[in-house]
Amino acid sequence: MLTALLVMASIAVVLGALLGFASIKFKVEGDPLVDQIDAILPQTQCGQCGFPGCRPYATAIAGGEAEINQCPPGGEEGIRKLADLLGREFKPLSEEHGVEKPKSVAIIDEQTCIGCTLCIQACPVDAIVGAAKQMHTIVAADCTGCELCLAPCPVDCISMQPIAETVDTWKWRYPVIEIKAAA
């Protein structure tokens, strides 16, 4: 009886020590699920989801505080990917957060720009260059099309232009087969 108890107790001690050691040795910093969700989000940093950036939204989704259908730039495909990852049901994009738009870049009308720097402060990815009372311009390659610069502009000189297709970005279409009615 006593031997059995001792054996069981020692096994418990050994296994407990092992588990304790493993939890220190293989400790995971941060939440890997947030990273996975963040990787799916388009990183527009537009805040249309109601969170200040993509990562806070990813954290909220992981914590179950937000729905997966609040990201208009990610669109339907993004929602599908999130639904797959999290094993949740697919939902159409929630209307209160906006609609899916074609990818665009912001363009500053350089004649109208007064150099107030308000858009520079608003840009989440530092894609606008300029200085006080100097003309501003947008680094198109880094612009995510978040539209956050539109509202602060006092002279409404920023407009969104859809990105045109070039040979480098052109895609082969999905093969479509004509179906003919049987004669």
Partner: peptide
């Protein structure tokens, strides 16, 4: 797209 997203994430975090 993924490259663009990664750049945007880096730039956002840096900002």
């Amino acid at each position: 797209e993924k490259d663009a997203a990664d750049t945007a994430r880096d730039r956002f975090e840096f900002k």
